[in-house]
Structures are given as C-alpha cells and as structure tokens.
Design a protein around this nucleic acid. Structure first.
Length: 763
DNA sequence: TGCCGCTGGATTTTT
DNA sequence: TCCAGCGGCA
C-alpha cells in the first residue's frame, strides 16, 4: 500500500518524506500543519514499514490528540494487532507523563494511584503550607508564590536550586514554601500539573532502564506546537529522542503566546543548534484566510524583532476589507457585534457556528453575552468558569479522589464537612496538629481521634461518622456509573442540597446528576472504565475538548489564548484598545509587548473570510470608566486594507435595547478617534427603535432585534420560554428585572422584561 | 460551628 | 463589578 501524497504542496511533501533524523517544520498559521503531521505518520507506517508501536506523537491539547488519532484512523484504515493505530501513543505531554508515571510510580516514592492536583487543590495546599510556616499572605501573595514555584518547576529547578538563586524576600519565601509543599505532595501521594513533567523527567533521567526502554520503543517522535514547550518538556523530548534522533518538531515562533507559563521560545529558535544535522522546512503558504486578512496579520507581526523572518502568502482571493469599528462604549461594541452577526446571517446566509468573538480578558465577555442575549443569538462561552470547576462537582470529585487515594489530604479536608457534619475548623486544626506531631497522615490522625480521647465527645462522634462513611465508600464495587452514584448517595451530597430546598441548591443537585451523565459517557467511550481511569481523564480534560461536541447552532466566545489552533469564517476581536490589548501589564516591556503582538497575530489568523476589530471610546472595567486609545495593533495594519466605522459622537444615545438608566454615552466629543471615518460604512442604517432624539445621523446603528411591545407581566413561579435558553421559571421579580432559572442550563439569568426574547407559557 | 458582611484583588491558563 | 477569604459574632 502506498500513501497518496499528491495533494500536498512541495514543502509539505518534503516535510512528510523527511522521516529520518531531526526535522524542524516552521509552519505558519493555516499552512496545513496538522495535515503534514498526520500524513507523515501515515507515510511512516504504510511506506516505511514503521510499526505504530514505535511512534510517539505529542500534541498540546487533548482535542488535537483526538483529532489526530481520528484522521490517522481514516488515512490508515484498520490494521490488525500491533499495526493498529491504537498501538501508537498520540497524546499531550501531560497525558504521556501520567501514563509513564502510573507504570513506574514506585521508583519515585509514589504509588500508582496518585492523585493529580489541579489548580484549586494546589492552591489550597500552598495556602496550608504558608499558614504552617507562618508566612503572611499579604506580604507574600499566594499567587506570586505559586507562580515562582511553578516557573521553577518548569525550569526543572528544585526547591534547593530556587533557594540558591533567591535574593528577594519573596523568592526566598517561595523557596521555603516550595520545599515544604513538595514534602506535603509526596505525603499525599499527589502531584500537581507541573510535577507530572518534573517527575517524568526524574524518572527518565534517574532510571536508565526505564529510559532505555522508551528510547528503544519510540523510534519516531513528533512534537506539535513546539514553540510553546517549556524547559521540562524540552528536556523530556530530548531524553526520549536521544538514541534515534528521529525527532520532528512543528511550530511557529510567531504563535508563541505562553511564555508567562514557562514556554521558552528558544526551544524552537535554537532547534538547529541542538540538532545541527536537522532538516528545516518552512510552510509559508496559507490556505485559510483571504489575502487581506493575511496581509494584515503579516503587517502586524512584522513589527516584532525577535522572530524568524518569514512572510506568509496565499493564492486565496483578496476578500473583504478588515472592518474596524469604534464603539461608544463596551455595550455599543457588543451590540454592534450582535448586529453584524444578524446582518451577515441574513445577507450571506451564515449560520451562528460561522462566527467567533475573541477577547483579551474573560471580564470582557459579560457585555458581549449581554448583547447576544438581548438579540436572541445563541452563544457558547468556551473557558471561563467551567462545569468541572463548580463547587458541587469539585465536592463529588473530592470524594472520588479520597476513595482512590487515602493519602490525599486536600481532598479529605474538602469533603470532611461537606455536606455539613458538624466538623468545624477547630476540630480539623486539632487533627492536623496531631498528624504533624506524630508524623502520620491526616486520615490516620482522624482515626486516632476517634479511638483516643483528646477531642470533645461531639466532634469525636462526628469524626466517627465520617470515617465510617469513608470505609463504606472504599469497599463499594460496581460498574463506574453505579459506583459514582453510590458514592454520592452515601456521602449524602444530593440529599443535603435537596433538603435546602432553595433554587440554587436544587440547581447544584441537578449539576451532580449531570455529572453522572458525564460518567456514563466516559464509561461508554473507554475500554476499561475504572474509577482511577476516570479520575485521570477528568484531571486532564478541559473545556476546550468539548468545543464542537455541541451539534446546536452557537456563536462561540472565547479568549484569544483559547482560540489558538481554531478557525472561523467570521471573527470579531473585541476590545482592541491600548491597556486592554495590548494589556496594561504587558505594554511597557518589549518582550511582553511582542507576546501581545503575537497574540494579536493569532487572533487575526483565526479568520477565514471576514475580520472585525472593534474598540470602544469608553469602557467600564471593574466599575471604573476608562478611555483608551485604539490599539496600536490596528494602526499597524496598512490603511488600505481597513474599513473604519463607528460612532464616538455626542449625539449617540442608543438604540433602545441596551440597558436603560445608564449614562447613554453622553460624554463629550471623540470623533477623531475612529481615524476620520466616523460612521456609515459597512453598517446598515436602521432607524434605532425607541431611540430618543439626538440619535440622528450619528445614531446609525447596526441591525438588531427591536424592543418588543411590553404586553406581558411576570410573577414568581411563571413558566417562560426563552429564544435561546428554552424553558425556565421566574424566581424573582424586581420591577422589570427578572431572574429566571432555565431548565436546560440549570442556570439563573437576570433578564429584562421587554428586552429579553421571552414569552410566558400558558399553563 | 456556622453565618454574615467586609475587604482586597482581579491578564492570559493548551495541562 | 464580582468573587473569595477571613474575621467577627450569635
């Protein structure tokens, strides 16, 4: 069987056919990088007779891994046994590390059922350690400490090494906290995300046999998004590839946007130095975007100095000009976007899934959400507060973690009094103290407290109850879903929420039931759905993994960071203002400003056909109104590719479906802000419904739903139907502000009568 | 022990 | 603006 490579361009083909020795592929945005990666692996297997068993392909997200696996399965068809593509390791660094660590945990002093601490768990533990060592979290902000520890870890620096290179009090404190934190993690048989890498590196570098085995096995290795690897990942890659040196790395230095998380752009810039015999292939033809969008992207990123010079080209059509819109404030900006979505939906028959709205910071999503809600446009936010971050879900996960790994203190403490069992802080502190004095785990101390007599009788009884529950939970058996349901049942989580009888509590109970569905889905899609396997999957999954699980029609909202690797026909980038994007904290240092610019480059290159860059004359952030000038990144795009529009005028007073009772844009002048062209272009002139005098010519605004006649009145308990959110129940009424709990999302939203697309359902 | 209200802090977050 | 954490109080 031979793989058909004729659909590839010469550069792509060269990358695919260079199978021996190190290979660096510099792949510009939209240049068919994923195709190259998958074709190369398929080529190795079908034409070079490499066993899938010998292939390791590392991606940066689970989603990318899943996609690659899928594409490979299609390219390869089904092959038997070890030739099956299932023998291949296609995974993220972290998933790969977990797999290696589970196998050899004992060599590092862990057991194979170790818990993976996510951000929240790790933060709790650091907080405890800081209390224990009596560090004041005012002088030593916990997040600063955590970021020192985390960056030390990504540099493969231990606590001792950090201590040596510390000069400031904060660094010194961080080093001490780091040391204790590590001890506590080991005692809890737990690892945080950084540890997965650090410990894998230790495993490989300290155990020759283990390293040998993996080196022999993985003769062909590829790493995607190489520009975003940190030092630990870099070191692991080099260890694994050292013997055969068939290492392919793919990346784009212009899309390096995670340096603040320890990603080291030098990994890609200096690959040829590390592997002097490397073949270098540049993929510079873009297949994604219109010529104009590409020119804009090129022009912006060309302002960076620390990069490999390159210019993407395309044979795609020139396309529309890039629309830049000056809004009067963030609500106007959001309304404009909503209006354009509706307009393009009608004029160009676009579906909601064609649109994406990007922003620099999550805080910006609120006003956008608001406008979409009012316009009745279905949307989905990717990232932000996630289902799995909800307190009640984390509680369930706490129980599961404690069941799987009895040493996991953080989880134990999370669930010890959830639901309330009368075990308060003072009891926990006493148990903790005894644990430390006797140098035993928290659970042992807890059991001792039940046996012995150093706690008040009531606390002792409560603890007894809790340990009994734990014992019961740990002996449960059954298929995964039953198991999880039984654990939740015995823990009394749902029962406690239902007893509360408040709307919020019922919603939480509902969320837990939703979690059972997640369990079922996991069980159905995995070969051996054990509880530990499920926990692992949970720990490593993210919201992004489910971006397109939804078959429904949604406009997608997310931060620019989250958008990396995705593409949409129509892209809006909101908040292109100085101090928002580039962000305030990154504006004044050249290196971080360049990263902001790369971020802008990433945002622009997500767009296939149309690109909107919006900014606002005034914007309220955290309750404070700011006036920011347009982002320099807009100015870096050649004017002939930009069509500016917008307001920024005295007369603006809104269209009627934005919030009432606000300042309605009644600030002074600002016409110059839009770069000469104030209004009109590209924006349909729709008389503003319900707009008051003064709208006039400047009131020209995008199309949008008009305010509905206010015929209905609502009261608590009414069943309603919302255009986007479906059925719900009114929970509070405050004038024409309603709070409605929706059945489908189980969320409570604040809506305004007469603006929101809701109707009362007759009962 | 548990609730309430005050205070301070709030980029980005593939894992 | 909005959330989490902590201290004060019943």
């Amino acid at each position: 069987m031979t793989l058909d490579l004729t659909s590839l361009n010469p550069a792509q083909r060269q990358a695919v056919e260079t199978t021996e020795g190190p290979l660096l592929v510099l792949a510009g945005a939209g240049s068919g990088k994923t195709r190259v990666l998958t074709y190369r692996i398929a080529h190795l297997i079908t034409d070079k007779r490499v066993s899938p068993h010998e292939i390791l392909a590392i991606t940066f997200t689970n989603k990318a891994a899943a996609e690659m696996r899928e594409r490979l399965a299609t390219l390869l068809g089904s092959l038997p046994g070890q030739y099956s593509s299932r023998a291949m390791w296609v995974s993220t660094f972290h998933a790969m590390c977990v797999r290696m660590l589970r196998t050899d945990a004992k060599l590092l002093g862990f057991t194979s059922n170790f818990t993976i601490y996510d951000d929240d768990d790790s933060k709790r533990l650091v907080r405890e350690v800081m209390k224990e060592l009596e560090y004041d979290d005012k002088r030593y902000p916990i997040n600063a400490v955590r970021s020192r520890i985390s960056s030390a870890k990504s540099e493969l620096m231990g606590a001792a090494a950090l201590a040596e290179s510390s000069f400031t009090p904060l660094d010194k404190a961080a080093a001490k906290i780091f040391a204790r934190y590590e001890t506590r993690l080991l005692a809890a048989n737990s690892m945080d995300f950084d540890d997965l890498l650090v410990n894998t590196h230790r495993l490989l570098s300290e155990n020759v046999k283990v390293l040998d085995a993996y080196q022999d096995r993985f003769r062909y290795i590829s790493v995607d998004e190489y520009q975003d690897t940190n030092h630990a990942q870099y070191a692991i890659t080099n260890l694994l590839a050292a013997k055969h040196r068939h290492l392919m790395v793919v990346g784009d230095d212009d899309q390096s946007i995670y340096s603040w998380r320890g990603a080291d752009i030098r990994n890609i810039l200096e690959f040829e130095h590390d592997y002097p015999e490397a073949t270098v292939v540049k993929l510079e033809e873009n297949y994604r975007s219109t010529a104009r969008i590409l020119m804009a992207a090129n022009a912006v990123v060309a302002n960076n100095t620390n990069r490999k010079p390159k210019t993407l080209f395309t044979s795609n059509a020139e396309g529309e000009k890039i629309a830049s819109y000056l809004a009067s404030d963030e609500r106007d900006e959001a309304r404009f976007i909503a209006g354009e979505i509706e307009r393009l939906g009608r004029a160009e028959h676009r579906r909601y899934t064609d649109f994406a709205i990007f922003y620099r910071t999550n805080a910006q999503s609120r006003s956008l959400e608001d406008a979409l809600l009012r316009a009745g446009i279905a949307y989905k936010i990717v990232g932000g507060t996630r289902f799995f971050d909800r307190a009640e879900i984390r509680d369930v996960m706490g129980y599961l973690k404690a069941v799987v790994n009895p040493a996991d203190e953080i989880s134990l403490k999370r669930i010890i009094n959830t639901p309330k069992r009368g075990i308060g802080d003072s009891t926990i502190d006493k148990v903790q103290l005894v644990a430390r004095e006797r140098n035993v785990g928290f659970e042992d101390a807890m059991r001792a407290a039940v046996e012995e007599d150093w706690l008040a009788a009531r606390a002792r009884m409560s603890l007894l109850g809790f340990t009994q529950i734990l014992d019961e939970l740990r002996v449960l058996e059954g298929d995964l879903r039953d198991l999880v349901e039984m654990i939740v049942e015995k823990a009394g989580l749902i029962a406690a929420y239902e007893a509360e009888r408040t709307d919020e509590a019922l919603g939480r109970a509902e969320n837990i039931r939703e979690f059972f569905t997640v369990v079922s889905e996991f069980a159905a899609s995995h070969d051996e759905p054990s509880l530990p396997a499920f926990m692992e999957w949970l720990a490593l999954r993210t919201d992004l993994d489910s971006v397109d699980e939804c078959v429904d029609e949604f406009v997608t909202l997310m931060t620019v960071h989250t958008a990396k690797g995705l593409e949409y026909p129509v892209v809006f980038v909101a908040g292109l203002e100085e101090s928002i994007f580039p962000h305030q904290n990154s504006m004044f240092e050249p290196a971080s400003l360049e990263e902001e610019r790369r971020l802008a480059y990433v945002a622009i290159t997500r767009a296939r056909e149309r690109l909107y860059l919006t900014h606002a004359y005034s914007r309220s952030i955290f309750g404070v109104t700011q006036h920011n000038s347009p982002s320099r990144f807009i100015g870096e795009i050649p004017a002939e590719h930009v069509e500016a529009s917008g307001v920024g005028s005295v007369g603006f007073s809104g269209t009627g479906w934005e919030k009432r009772g606000d300042r309605s844009g009644s600030y002074g002048h600002g016409t110059a802000e839009s770069g000469g062209r104030v209004f009109g272009s590209g924006t349909r002139q729709v008389p503003a419904a319900g707009s008051s005098a003064g709208g006039g010519a400047f009131g020209a605004r995008s199309a949008g739903p008009k305010r509905k006649e206010q015929t209905e009145t609502f009261s608590v308990g009414d069943a309603v139907d919302h255009k986007v959110f479906g059925r719900g129940t009114v929970t509070t009424v405050n004038g024409d502000a309603l709070e409605i709990r929706f059945d489908r999302t189980r969320e409570t939203k604040k809506l305004l009568v007469g603006y929101a697309p809701i109707v009362k359902i007759k009962q």
